[in-house]
């Protein structure tokens, strides 16, 4: 019951910033940006932390969705929604290929292969400059031109909430429980007769599709993408979202996204010192609060209000 309230609470919190649409301006712009990364953060939460799959290619699947949308719409004149769908499907294919091709390797080697793909991909985008724009990037009107910025903002908020609701729902189903079992003990799950490979492919497919769709949404909202936006640090920041926020509670990634994406936006005047601040905070959280911020904030609140505990 408590878990259900936590899930409903998480979705309601996610819907709250839709009110910013009345205020508009910087607050609205930056909230939309945080939400676009929150989608990727929940993909990492689902695939890495809940399904136990050592994948680090989130910026790649996100970028495939984004670039496919622009290239198919602008260069091949495909309808926008078809391009977005194909972009998400392509990201799914890449994620599944990555899983299948590294299935002979174990643990950290799989992480490394996908992490190297995250290093390789922006370099590939730069090498393919005539098509992708390289570091100069590509501009895209997309959905903004179609429905307007405010409607798109609301769409981003509602779609993010829907995606998070989907992840929370799936983790409560039989499939979700099997994925949790795989993450806790892969061999034992096989021993009880479950086809773990099938479930892993399903996990990669879901993660790839939503990450690719999130990438397509990203480029529609920001109206621009370049190799700089998808450099290897993007994948690290996405991974840090559930890690810092706390992967054991449903709303952990929300807290993580506020921390990892919003704080740098607010600290632009002292950008020079940002990496020092971030590096130290990451180390301190990992060493002192390995469960992430959310569970510790919960504990702190319980201490402050012992009657509720």
């Amino acid at each position: 019951m408590k878990g259900r309230y936590e899930k409903i609470g998480t979705i309601l919190i996610l819907l709250l910033p839709s009110l910013f649409v009345f205020k508009g301006g910087y607050l609205q712009e930056v909230t939309g940006y945080v939400y676009l990364f929150l989608i990727q953060g929940y993909v990492a939460w689902f695939l890495f932390f809940k399904s136990g799959q050592p994948f680090f290619g989130y910026s790649v699947t996100m970028a495939i969705g984004a670039y496919a949308t622009i290239v198919l719409t602008e260069m091949f004149q495909w309808p926008l929604f078809v391009s977005i769908f194909i972009g998400a499907v392509l990201a799914t294919v890449i994620a599944v290929i990555m899983f299948l091709s590294t299935s002979r390797a174990r643990g950290f080697y799989v992480s490394m292969a996908s992490f190297l793909l995250a290093i390789l991909f922006p370099k590939l985008i730069e090498a393919l400059q005539p098509i992708t724009g390289g570091r100069s990037g590509l501009y895209f009107g997309g959905l903004t031109a179609l429905v307007g910025y405010k409607t798109l903002y609301l769409l981003v908020i509602f779609l993010t909430a829907a995606i998070v609701a989907f992840f929370l729902w799936i983790m409560g189903t039989k499939t979700g429980r099997i994925l949790t079992l795989i993450s806790e003990n892969d061999r034992l799950t096989q021993t009880v007769g479950l086809n773990t490979r099938k479930y892993k492919i399903l996990a990669y497919s879901i993660a790839g599709f939503i990450s690719g769709f999130g990438g397509a949404l990203y480029v529609n909202y920001t109206g621009f993408i370049s190799s700089v936006d998808i450099e290897v640090f993007t994948t690290l920041y996405i991974f840090f979202i559930p890690l810092i926020g706390g992967s054991k509670v449903f709303y952990g990634p929300v807290l993580g996204a506020l921390f990892v994406i919003l704080i740098p936006e607010l600290l632009v005047p002292v950008e020079r010192y940002l990496r020092i601040f971030f590096g130290l905070i990451f180390i301190l959280v990992i060493v002192l609060l390995p469960e992430g911020l959310a569970p510790n904030i919960q504990k702190l609140l319980r201490k402050m209000n012992p009657k509720r505990a």
Partner: peptide, 15 residues
Amino acid sequence: IVTVSLGFVFEGLMR
């Protein structure tokens, strides 16, 4: 994760 974070610190210090 820890060593990449350490890298962030030293890159920031250089900056």
